[in-house]
Amino acid sequence: MQNEKLNTAEDIIICRDVHKWFGDFHVLRGVNVTIKRGEVVVICGPSGGGKSTFIRTINRLEEHQRGDIIVDGIELTSDLRNIHAVQREIGMVFQSFNLFPHLKAIDNISLAPIWVRKWPKEKAVKAAMELLERVGIPEQAYKYPGQLSGGQQQRVAIARALAMQPKIMLFDEPTSALDPEMIKEVLDVMVELARSGMTMIVVTHEMGFAKEVANRIIFFADGNIVEQNTTEEFFINPREDRTKLFLSQILTH
């Protein structure tokens, strides 16, 4: 374990030969990838290829069955303490927002700091308000999720994830469930976050976002990484035929 600590200085996520099966279906087939601190990585690829499952194994919403995942020096094993430690380091934003409908926006955000970090309520609420200002909707603080638009809900969800002061943010198709006019407001928040130096892994088909802030793009299909490259190279010089086909399909519109 000691030598793991050494290379975690720069590499915040290390995945080695990660496998996962859903029943007999082999979803992840030996994924190897390393993410550096502060890096913004976009994962794209055809649906059903395992992109979402892969990022969900990183914060243990899905359990991998073979291989190693090490997050900030903590290896994900079945040890609950490790799992909770990793989950506290990682914030996650879902396609379907998954806000808690029985809590107001501000309580959605301050809940985990109060109960997990044991912050006093005043401090947590103040921090939550600052986060709402950061995502641009402080005036919606005392509304319930059901009273907010999709774009506003997703911004509250980003603020909720940030409230635990994570080192890494995972985004699982954050704009796929949004109406077109609301996509930009969410992407703007994500761009700001990327520029602030947050380590981000984003599953998305928003290639404009990828071009603007991603350091690296990973093309994921059939349970493994088909190709990965720096953003410029990825668009100018795709090497694999599958990547070229995929790019031609999503960029022609």
């Binding site: 243990r60 919403l61 990682i90 379907s96 109960w115 997990v116 635990m164």
Partner: peptide, 20 residues
């Protein structure tokens, strides 16, 4: 998704049940 979101913000199983 409610369970997942609650676990993702770091709540343990008892808190997921009691709060969410």
């Amino acid at each position: 998704g409610q369970y997942e979101a609650a676990r993702a913000v770091g709540l343990n199983e008892a808190l997921v049940m009691a709060l969410i």
